[in-house]
């Protein structure tokens, strides 16, 4: 089944054209990476799919539901982790997960089940009962990933899930994403400007540059096509930069 279907998607911010008609599809259970430099249009694409922004042209569907006209339906299926997200500082990590679980509980799983899973994914030990204000960046990010995944979404949209984190925290987050895709069948749409991270994580990737998708394929296919050692090289060749 198709989890995401994007056709000729456009987005203008006034005079700036952030997306110039992109198209791609993501299959159910896949980890799909959207990669490109800063300002390429990754976050805009993710925000449109997360029902936060309205496209100015084209269409986008999540499990057959239009993200504009059926936004309420889409929100029941997705879980979105923004790039620069935070949690409520005056709540403890546990209370934050509890608040979110209560709002999602009607979609199937019980609050207790979600909380148990959330605490496990966050992996913060006893610190889960401390206020979020006392958390490091890595701890907050793990808490937010736990929030996004404990609700067992059909589609998780993660914007730069491991950006700015140290090796250990970034590794833990990538492992969790892989586990949820393989064991729980959750579909992932992940954006990153870290091409090596994406190569490790994603089943298929789309290379995006200046609002246009330049290539789509598995990391292996793309490397072979461009005769490159890694995705970084693929990207540079695909956008026509001489190495």
């Amino acid at each position: 089944m198709t989890a995401i279907k994007v056709e000729n998607l456009e987005k203008d911010y006034g005079k700036v054209k952030a997306l110039k008609g992109i198209s791609f599809e993501v299959k159910e259970g896949e980890i799909f990476g959207l990669i490109g430099p800063n300002g390429a249009g990754k976050s805009t694409t993710l925000k449109i799919l997360a029902t936060l922004l309205m496209p100015t042209g084209g269409r986008a569907e999540v499990y057959g539901h239009n993200v504009v006209s059926e936004a309420d339906e889409v929100r029941k299926l997705i879980s979105y982790l923004p790039e620069e997200a935070g949690a409520y500082k005056n709540l403890t990590g546990y209370e934050y997960l509890q608040f979110m679980a209560k709002l999602y509980a009607k979609t199937g799983k019980s609050v207790e089940e979600m909380l148990k899973l959330g605490v496990e994914i966050a992996g913060l030990g006893e610190r889960i009962h401390d206020k979020v204000a006392t958390y490091s960046k890595g701890m907050t990010r793990k808490l937010l990933l736990a929030r996004a995944l404990m609700v067992m979404p059909k589609l998780a949209i993660l914007d730069e899930p491991a950006s700015g984190l140290d090796i250990i925290n970034a590794y833990a987050i990538r492992q969790t994403i892989k586990r949820f895709a393989r064991e729980e069948g959750v579909t992932f749409l992940v954006s990153s400007h870290n091409m090596l991270e994406v190569e490790f994580l994603c089943d298929r990737v789309a290379l995006i540059n200046k609002g246009i998708i330049v290539e789509v394929g598995t990391p292996k296919e793309l490397k072979e096509k461009y005769n490159a050692e890694n995705l970084e090289e693929v990207f540079m060749k695909a956008v026509g930069v001489r190495l």
Binding site: L52, D72, R75, Y80, L81, A87, L103
Partner: peptide, 13 residues
Amino acid sequence: NKTLETLLTLPVK
């Protein structure tokens, strides 16, 4: 605190 975007994608009216 960058919590608004998350809040707006929740399945809540």
